[in-house]
């Protein structure tokens, strides 16, 4: 039992990869300024790009709790960055579920890693929660915040309570595709170099 407890080294690994994932998320988020449809395409971009560091991260996971911890950290950072607390439950739940799935495969089986990463990617949809849950007041706050009415209308056409299910599925699917991609990249670069 004692062997399964997380050590200082694991915490540091989690911290580093959280920082990288957040940097990826932040850079993709900047692209969203250009057009609202790009905001909707986060569900494709972030799973694909984020897959590379995440697959490297998965090779370092050996114990339960690292993915959970990561999701908690992401929730905290999202709150500090001004994204609100509405998405926090979704982020943490997807982290725990992803952790459980990966645990089932013993953190080694590639099949469970793929599904687990797909589930983990659902946290991205948490960014949309303020848009859906408080659609009216969020629209007003965007307008007051200086976005143009055009931007808002486009945003709400792309993201509403009807499309969210679709976006969640997209997240999951592209998470799995990203897992294969990330695995290939990790194999190409890191296994050859003997890092993993």
């Amino acid at each position: 039992m004692n062997d399964n407890k997380l050590k200082a080294k694991d915490f540091i690994t989690v911290g580093i990869f959280t920082a990288i994932i957040f940097a990826v998320e932040f850079l993709c988020g900047m692209l969203g300024l250009i057009h609202p449809y790009i905001v909707a395409s986060y569900v494709i971009m972030i799973p694909l790009v984020g897959a590379i560091p995440m697959m490297l991260f998965y090779t370092k996971i050996e114990k339960f709790g690292m993915l959970t911890l990561m999701s908690i950290l992401i929730a905290i950072i999202m709150f500090v960055a001004g994204m609100g607390w509405l998405g926090a439950p979704l982020i943490i739940i997807s982290g725990v579920v992803a952790d459980l799935i990966a645990k089932k495969g013993g953190y080694k089986s590639f099949k469970s890693t793929v599904i687990s990463y797909g589930v983990f990617c659902l946290w991205i949809c948490a960014n949309y929660f303020p848009v859906i849950v408080t659609a009216k007041s969020y629209r007003q706050s965007l307008l007051d915040g200086g976005y143009s009415a055009e931007y808002c209308d486009n945003l709400f056409r792309a993201i509403n309570s009807k499309t969210i299910a679709f976006l969640l599925i997209l997240c999951f699917v592209f998470g799995m595709i990203g897992a294969f991609l990330g695995k290939a990249v990790v194999k190409k670069h890191f296994e050859k170099a003997g890092i993993v």
């Binding site: 915490f11 540091i12 989690v14 911290g15 580093i16 911890l69 905290i76």
Partner: peptide, 18 residues
């Protein structure tokens, strides 16, 4: 909890490094 504290500290320290 130690886990959250250590990882948060690493995240904080890591952004400039990144």
């Amino acid at each position: 909890p130690d886990g959250i504290a250590v990882s948060l500290a690493v995240v904080m320290r890591f952004f400039p490094t990144l």
